[in-house]
């Protein structure tokens, strides 16, 4: 007896929307990064659940690649946040307004 696929997808969609909410409301760049991670992991849940549903491993292997890329993205993101902090003494994404949005 397995859990139906719908529940996995609903879980991942909830996670995706929570991540989106975080992106829209958080002003701290680090929280922003964490919200993006939530969205990426929502996709991973989907991929793995669907891999089980379809009975092939494509989704599982791709989820591994997604994790590696998420780590790479965080590395670059933290670098940019570091430079941001050195220039503005803050990690609030609304502080840099040399140019308007």
């Amino acid at each position: 007896m397995t859990v139906p696929i719908e529940y996995y997808v609903l879980l991942s969609m909830a996670l995706f929307c929570i991540g989106l909410f975080g992106i829209l409301t958080r002003r701290n760049a680090l929280m922003f990064l964490m919200s993006v991670e939530l969205m990426l992991n929502a996709a991973n849940i989907n991929l793995i659940a669907f891999a089980f549903y379809h009975g092939n491993l494509t989704g599982q292997v791709f989820a591994l690649f997604t994790m590696a890329l998420a780590a790479a993205e965080v590395a670059v993101g933290l670098g940019i946040i570091l430079v941001l902090y050195r220039n503005f003494r803050d990690v609030d994404v609304t502080v840099p307004t040399t140019m308007r949005w």
């Binding site: 139906p4 719908e6 929307c17 929570i18 989106l20 829209l24 549903y53 009975g55």
Partner: peptide, 23 residues
């Protein structure tokens, strides 16, 4: 906005004809 998006997405998923059996 986030809740509305979730409701839309959930509606789509619940209306998708997944077969009850996982492979």
């Amino acid at each position: 906005l986030a809740v509305a998006l979730f409701v839309i997405m959930a509606t789509i998923v619940l209306n998708t004809g997944f077969s009850p059996e996982m492979e």
